[in-house]
Design a protein around this nucleic acid. Structure first.
Lengths: 220, 220
DNA sequence: ATATATTTTTAGGCTAGTCTAAATTTTTTA
DNA sequence: TAAAAAATTTAGACTAGCCTAAAAATATAT
């Protein structure tokens, strides 16, 4: 039983919205994320429930079943592997690959995914620092900090982003904030929580709270 | 104006069936090739004609317009480039790549195709010896011979296949007949036109007319 | 040259996925 | 806790792409 492009997208989005503790996802949230109307979402939810991919009770929101979770994670695996391919092999910027990977992630063929994975050297993270589920479907989200949780004078490693918007990623590019960069928090402005940070022991720059909130980092 | 997966497939098939002199393609031939019914084909032809992609007069068969030809050639370019990728980079056999490329060929993004092309080193032929149209849409079919046109004692180079069926390609693999192999025709059996050929100056083997008819070769 | 066979088109219908408008349920608030 | 607001579902409809059955056009054969 094959799942359609659209079904796979709903499952992927439910996975993303329900977070790591598998919270219920609302119809409206799905309508927002899928750029459709709530009524359309309801139709699809009935269908996914009939296929045993989600737990759905009218008006109660949805969660993935085991089987729905498996499908979602496979899609995520494919998406992230293709992103690695696009950046590492084809030379795309990390701000350019999302939409293309969004298409490639629905290409069926287990063997294609596994050969791609091997070709890429079994990467553990995609170009945005998101972890790539393994072939068995194990996905462990590393527990990174958000830069806002870092104290003044701490040095941390830049490990990923929460916001994947091209404009945000381009902003980071212009600031020299790349994956693996060492970020030292020099100062935090009490008034607006903007920060002054030093990148790789080099230039110091100011970043707004909005930026800090979207940077995932790790203590060294 | 984007063309759908299905529309692209129709255009690609019309291109293939109309051959290099752009002959009219019949509704029934399309039904056969698309694995649909003639009535469905008629629907789609009306649609493609409305979009200016084909010349269509009821009961008269169809040909591609300039614009339809451009779309078809882009799809063919993508198909063949992805086949090169699958064989050269991911290690698939030439008998395994058709169905996957059939999906990948519909991924939109001009820049993806061009980056893929560069990554592959601007290949001129796909793993079956079919020529890859260039970025401008120039597709020149080399005028290869069919092995049946080769005389006894002639030596030719194996350049491609007409039949792309996995079973045929696997048969060639087992016989050691690969692209670039030197084939010397040692003898032709008058009765059934089967031939005895020597591969790369090594083993001699018998091949049936059915096989000869599907081998594209070139005089050296 | 006409009857028969073949091909193609039309007519009407189906499913997936979407929509709007209206009805219903749940949540919030006074 | 009842009324208002918000969220969700139902009802009915649309498009793309497909189907079957019947009608119409073209091709073939006597």
């Amino acid at each position: 039983m094959q799942n359609s492009f659209t079904e796979e997208n709903y499952l992927k989005i439910i996975h993303a919205l329900s977070g790591r503790d598998g919270l219920e996802v609302s119809t409206n949230a799905l309508a927002e994320s899928t750029s459709t109307r709530a009524a359309s979402v309801t139709d699809m939810l009935r269908k996914l429930a009939d296929k045993g991919l989600i737990h759905y009770k009218k008006y109660q929101g949805v969660t993935l079943t085991e089987s729905g979770e498996r499908v979602a994670i496979k899609v995520i695996r494919k998406h992230r592997l293709w992103e690695v391919f696009l950046v590492e092999k084809l030379g795309f910027g990390w701000d350019e690959v999302h939409d293309i990977a969004e298409e490639l992630e629905h290409i069926p063929s287990e063997v294609l995914v596994e050969k791609l994975d091997a070709f890429l050297g079994h990467p553990k993270f995609d170009p945005h620092g998101d972890p790539i589920p393994d072939a068995k479907g194990n996905l462990t989200e590393p527990d990174y900090l958000i830069l806002t949780d870092v104290q003044v004078s701490e040095k941390v490693l830049m490990m990923g982003v929460l916001d994947h918007a091209p404009s945000f990623l381009q902003h980071l590019d212009r600031s020299g904030i790349t994956l693996g960069a060492v970020i030292e928090v020099k100062e935090i402005n009490e008034y607006d929580k903007s920060a002054s940070v030093q990148i790789n022991g080099g230039p110091t720059l100011f970043i707004s709270l909005e930026v800090s909130k979207n940077l995932l980092v790790q203590r060294r």
